[in-house]
Design a protein around this nucleic acid. Structure first.
Length: 107
DNA sequence: ATTTTGACCGTGC
DNA sequence: CGCACGGCCAAAA
């Protein structure tokens, strides 16, 4: 490695996808969380853009939610709520209940 | 290199 | 409480 060891050499997108794959079943992370974990704390906007493009079944993109536990976007919103509920997450009309308890933090 | 495009976020009214 | 706006950022055009 050269002197410039800023961080991974992969694209931001690659890091984001890797992170999202690590979110366990029954847990969630916000777009902001993912951005921060990927090393770009303010790139939440870009994370959303990446998610919109991510059609890979190996990436549980439904576990990436909006700030404060709000659902955020999805290709088909009702499907996102359904998937989260199937994992045991309680979703109210607007947001996830007990959000702080289901919010994922890497170890 | 510059412009456009979003599954966003926080603030203010 | 809800909506509009500005700011933010990486990737694609």
């Amino acid at each position: 490695m050269g002197a410039q060891t800023t961080s991974t050499r992969g694209t931001f997108e690659a890091r984001v996808l890797t992170l999202v794959r690590r979110i366990p079943r029954g847990r969630v992370a916000t777009y902001g969380d993912v951005a921060e974990l990927a090393g770009r704390p303010r790139a939440w906007r870009a994370v959303g853009t990446i998610m919109s493009n991510c059609r890979s079944p190996t990436v549980p993109c439904h576990r990436v939610v909006g700030a404060g536990g709000r659902l955020g976007g999805y290709s088909e919103p009702w499907r996102k709520r359904q998937l989260l509920r199937e994992e045991g997450i309680v979703v109210g009309r607007r947001a996830i209940r007990q959000f702080s308890q289901v919010r994922w933090t890497p170890r």
